[in-house]
């Protein structure tokens, strides 16, 4: 898609796009080796007490539908490839949120033989939410911080999109099932 910046309506279109993106972040959640404490807290943010649907967040099952990849847990050797594949299957623009201390740095699992470290060893991470596990409020706080940043600076987000789009095209070329699970045994 080429953007012709000469068009007078382009800035307006961009503004509408940004508005829509900020108000409709659909998320997909992947656990790459977490103790599932963070997973249930992420699920808890959807329940009546916290209700992330207020911000338009929907938890999607298919990576094709999602904008935000919420990662929990340190990256284990086996989950690494699946994590990358899920990221590649997501259409642009996409963001990664790392939830929990393990996802940030490996946390307590640093030094375990099957752990590779934090999510940012594998994927570019846009927001970090520390906590073990973070409270649902802290997760909301992190998401709101990410969305606020998108509103303020659409520019860095676009740059990132260009950087990663090559990977996405590559990912699309490989025949992919909707889920990263057609793996050969």
């Amino acid at each position: 898609m080429t953007l012709n910046l000469d068009k007078p309506w382009q800035p307006v279109l961009d503004k509408i796009k940004t508005w829509a993106r900020i108000n409709s972040p659909w998320a997909i959640h992947f656990n790459s080796g977490s103790c599932n404490g963070c997973d249930i807290e992420i699920l808890a943010t959807l329940t009546p007490r916290y209700d992330l649907e207020r911000f338009g967040v929907k938890l999607q099952g298919s990576p094709r539908h999602a904008d935000i990849l919420i990662c929990t847990g340190p990256v284990t050797r086996q989950a690494r490839d699946r994590l990358v594949r899920i990221y590649e299957q997501m259409p642009e623009p996409k963001f990664v949120v790392a939830v929990g201390s393990c996802a940030l740095s490996g946390g307590v699992f640093q030094g375990c033989y099957n752990v590779m470290g934090g999510i940012d060893k594998v994927l570019p991470v846009d927001a970090y939410i520390p906590g073990c596990p973070p409270r649902p409020e802290a997760i909301i706080d992190g998401l709101v911080k990410l969305l606020t940043q998108l509103q303020e600076g659409a520019a860095p987000e676009q740059n990132e999109g260009e950087n990663t789009s090559a990977a996405a095209v590559e990912g699309a070329e490989i025949q992919l099932d909707a889920q990263a699970n057609g793996e050969a045994k």
Binding site: R21, N23, S24, R54, R64, D67, Q89, P91
Partner: peptide, 24 residues
């Protein structure tokens, strides 16, 4: 719960329209 805001379906649609379409 409180539920989505009134413009939610609109935002969803615009966002999806502006998103990359992956053709397998």
């Amino acid at each position: 719960r409180i539920g989505p805001r009134w413009f939610q379906p609109l935002a969803d649609s615009i966002k999806l329209l502006a998103k990359e379409e992956v053709i397998p």
